[in-house]
Simulated assay, not measured.
Amino acid sequence: MHEKLITYINQYTNLPLTKEEEDLIIASFQPKKIRKKQYFLQEGDVCKYVGFIVKGAMRQYSVDEKGVEHIAQLYIENWWASDRESAVMLTLSRYNIDAWEDTELLIITVADMLYLMGKIPSFGEMTRMMDNRSFIASQRRFSSTISNSAEKRYEEFSKNHPQFIQRFPQHIIASFLGITKETLSRIRKK
């Protein structure tokens, strides 16, 4: 299970991990299995863990006062699941993160993640690269949401994340894109 994480880290750094560093990473990340619909994080809890998805799919979402779910993030293999705001600020999460499929994760406490970033140069480099990519993706999503039509948003999403189209149902994708499932259905029929 840890091999996928080690491979992931090595592909995002110019500093290959030493055997000692690999051992420290393996000792810091604990395997966890989450059944479909089981929570990784619930709204109102402080996010204490970061999860690396080895197998499965998850979603991060909030629920409004009418009971409508609003998808903030989708995760599949080789993605990291966490509520960054809650973890960094130690505030109560506004989100739920649950498994959309049976999921296998490697989890680490936020404190241990910070420790590894300082202790292992390649882990710190990988984390900085992840943060940069995440920030860029967030900027693009925000820009797309305020500037593009529903058709263009779906076109970009399906081009950039075709695997998500196969893994998540239409209503989840529609919510992620900020459109209704009826609109998405119309777009997909074209």
Rank of each mutant, 00 (worst) to 15 (best):
E3Y: 11
K4Q: 14
I6V: 15
I9H: 13
T13M: 07
N14E: 15
N14S: 14
L17W: 09
L17V: 10
T18L: 12
K19V: 13
D23L: 11
I25G: 09
I25W: 05
I25Y: 08
I26E: 08
A27I: 08
A27C: 09
A27K: 14
S28T: 11
F29C: 14
Q30S: 11
P31Q: 07
P31L: 04
K32R: 13
I34W: 01
I34L: 14
R35V: 05
L41Y: 01
E43F: 02
V46P: 04
C47W: 01
G51K: 02
G56E: 00
Q60N: 02
Q60I: 00
S62G: 07
V63D: 08
D64W: 10
E65V: 09
H70M: 07
I71N: 05
Q73K: 03
Q73E: 09
L74F: 01
N78G: 02
S82L: 05
S82W: 01
S86Y: 03
A87E: 02
T91L: 08
S93V: 04
N96I: 03
D98A: 06
A99Q: 04
E101P: 02
T103V: 08
T103H: 07
T103L: 05
L106F: 04
I108L: 12
V110D: 12
A111K: 15
D112L: 07
M113C: 09
L116T: 13
G118D: 14
K119M: 13
P121E: 11
E125D: 13
M126N: 06
T127C: 06
T127R: 06
T127H: 10
M129V: 12
M129K: 15
M130L: 13
R133T: 05
S134G: 15
F135Q: 13
I136P: 10
S138D: 12
S138Y: 14
R140W: 06
F142G: 08
S147N: 14
N148H: 14
S149L: 13
A150P: 08
R153S: 12
F157G: 10
S158N: 06
S158D: 04
Q163T: 10
F164I: 03
R167Y: 01
P169K: 04
H171V: 05
I172Y: 04
I172M: 06
I172E: 02
F176S: 00
L177G: 04
G178D: 10
G178W: 08
I179Q: 09
T180N: 12
T180I: 05
T183D: 10
